[in-house]
Amino acid sequence: MTAFARFLGEKAERYIELRHSLGYAFSKQAGTLRAFVRYVERAQLDAPATRTMALDFALSFGGAANSRVTRHGVLRQFYEYLAVYDVRTEALERRAFPRSRAITPPRILTDAELASLIDACARISPSTPLRGRTMASNARGGE
């Protein structure tokens, strides 16, 4: 393990502990940071942490465009933390990757699915039958 990878791993673990102490779950983000440390270690990259390093890491995974945005965002915040310990750390741009604005198409229910939904609405609150009838009526379109 290179000295830089060791340094990066130590700072990543401290950053993860900090985020946990502030009340954040931070589990997926912690996985991203640990994967970044492994990436730096495998590639035997040397200090400082650079924009190119972060971009190459974010692009090294497949998946949706929003996944790359998320990984880059985690690294961007970590780089800000890391810059306190190594002033040569390059700042990452907020909008390095465009976020996908794709809207999923609406799901059209079949007659059977709609009937099942209305039936479930009618039974939603046995202790308050009026609530269930109101929801079922609204699901039918306010009949």
Score class of each variant (00 low, 15 high):
Arg68Trp: 02
Cys121Tyr: 06
Ala136Leu: 10
Glu143Asp: 12
Cys121Gly: 10
Ile108Cys: 05
Phe57Ile: 01
Gly73Lys: 08
Ala49Val: 02
Thr50Arg: 03
Ser125Cys: 07
Pro126Arg: 12
Ala122Thr: 06
Phe78Tyr: 03
Met135Lys: 11
Glu10Lys: 13
Arg101Thr: 13
Gln77Met: 06
Leu75Ala: 01
Ala58Val: 01
Thr52Tyr: 04
Ile108Asn: 01
Val37Cys: 00
Pro126Gly: 08
Ala102Lys: 13
Cys121Ser: 08
His72Phe: 15
Met1Ile: 10
Ile108Val: 14
Arg99His: 10
Arg131Met: 11
Thr104Lys: 13
Tyr85Met: 06
Val69Ala: 05
Glu10Cys: 06
Arg14Ser: 11
Ile108Met: 05
Arg19Pro: 01
Gly63Ile: 10
Ala47Asp: 05
Glu143Leu: 14
Val74Cys: 07
Ala120Glu: 04
Thr134Leu: 15
Arg76Ile: 02
Gln29Phe: 09
Val87Pro: 09
Ala3His: 09
Leu117Asp: 09
Val40Ala: 07
Arg133Leu: 09
Thr104Asn: 08
Gly142Asn: 14
Leu8Phe: 00
Arg68Ile: 10
Ile124Tyr: 05
Arg107Ile: 11
Ala83Gln: 01
Phe26Arg: 04
Arg95Met: 13
Arg94Gly: 07
Arg68Gly: 01
Arg76Asp: 00
Ser21Gly: 14
Leu33Gly: 02
Arg71Trp: 05
Phe97Ser: 11
Ile108Glu: 02
Asp86Gly: 03
Arg140Ser: 08
Arg88Lys: 15
Gly62Phe: 06
Asn66Gln: 06
Ala64Lys: 12
Ala54Pro: 02
Phe78Thr: 00
Ala54Ser: 11
Asp119Asn: 09
Tyr15Pro: 00
Ser27Ile: 08
Ala96Pro: 02
Leu92Ser: 00
Thr110Ile: 03
Arg101Glu: 08
Leu45Ala: 06
Val74Trp: 01
Asn138Ala: 14
Phe78Gly: 00
Pro105Gln: 12
Gln77Ser: 06
Glu143Gly: 05
Ala139Glu: 13
Pro106Ser: 07
Thr70Gly: 14
Gly63Ser: 05
Pro126Met: 14
Ser137Arg: 15
Gly141His: 07
Tyr85Arg: 09
Glu93Ile: 02
Arg14Glu: 07
Gln29Asn: 15
Arg95Ser: 02
Ser27Asp: 14
Leu117Tyr: 12
Ala54Leu: 05
Val40Tyr: 07
Val40Pro: 02
Ile118Asp: 03
Pro48Ala: 10
Arg94Asn: 05
Phe78Glu: 00
Ser100Ala: 13
Glu80Pro: 01
Ser100Pro: 04
Arg101Leu: 10
Pro98Asp: 12
Asn138Gln: 15
Gly63Asn: 09
Tyr39Arg: 09
Leu59Asn: 15
Arg99Val: 15
Gly142Gln: 15
Arg123Gln: 09
Arg133His: 07
Phe26Gln: 04
Ala115Asn: 04
